[in-house]
């Protein structure tokens, strides 16, 4: 009974027609027990047509909501359809489907509510640029200071949520740059957060949503969000 948990992979997609098929093929091959759903965030390319043609299940957002809103749609879907585990998985080829089984085992073994795949435990694979690593390090320290929990890769988008975390994220999820903020929200609401080492690749297509100009806004916004999250009462 315990091993028959319903698992869902949430793939937020914005103009990912070039990589979505590879992502889905990897999922079918390496994580056959996981259902998957593409959340199309108003792509301007043929993402939807591609999903229809290849019978990939998808949700089609009528307006562009950004990464946070798209991922949250996936959590709503997980909640509505009784999934006990939901995992966020980037459609651009950065994440490796081979880790999903491993993540699920860890989540169950550690009785964790939220599992984050971290690039910086084993320090293998794509490590991001030096400046970005410095920024990530800063968030690790900030979160450690405010919550006492050490997250080596708070910006990692590869995360697996248990039932409680699904409910919390479906109710409230940050709109933009959601990763560090939602991790703090989870900790604050008493969820058990565990990190496991993963190796990520550099993206196959597209560019990071965080350009040089936006990175200052990113740092300020996320810092403020984490501080305010710490001040919230649950």
């Amino acid at each position: 009974m315990n091993n028959k948990k319903k698992c869902l992979v949430i793939i937020p997609a914005y103009n990912e027609e070039k990589s979505i098929l590879d992502t889905v093929r990897d999922l079918k091959e390496y994580a056959p027990e996981f259902d998957y759903i593409v959340v199309n965030d108003c792509s301007k390319d043929g993402t939807v047509a591609l999903c229809k043609k290849n019978q990939i299940p998808f949700l089609d957002l009528p307006v562009n909501l950004g990464i946070g809103g798209a991922v949250q749609t996936g959590y709503h879907y997980a909640l509505e359809n009784g999934y006990q585990i939901a995992v966020q998985f980037d459609g651009d080829g950065q994440h490796d489907a081979r880790y999903l089984e491993n993540m699920k085992e860890s989540l169950e073994r550690e009785k964790a509510d939220l599992l984050i795949g971290s690039r910086f435990i084993e320090k293998k694979g794509f490590q991001s640029s030096g400046l970005r690593r410095l920024g990530i390090r800063y968030f690790t320290i900030l979160i450690r200071m405010l919550t006492g929990v050490r997250i080596t890769d708070p910006t990692s988008g590869m995360r697996m949520a248990g039932e409680q975390a699904i409910l919390i994220f479906a109710t409230h999820y940050p709109k933009d740059y959601p990763e560090p903020e939602s991790a703090v929200a989870a900790i604050r609401q008493g969820l058990k957060l565990v990190e496991i080492p993963v190796v990520m690749r550099d993206r196959m297509e597209g560019t990071s949503s965080i350009s040089a100009g936006k990175s200052i806004y990113y740092m300020i916004k996320v810092t403020l969000a984490i501080l305010l999250e710490r001040m919230r009462r649950y």
Binding site: L59, D60, L61, P62, L65, Q72, T73, Y77
Partner: peptide
């Protein structure tokens, strides 16, 4: 509200 409505719409559309 717009975000909530879009999400509900996407789920219903599926």
């Amino acid at each position: 509200r717009m975000r909530q409505m879009s999400q509900a719409l996407a789920l219903a559309e599926k």
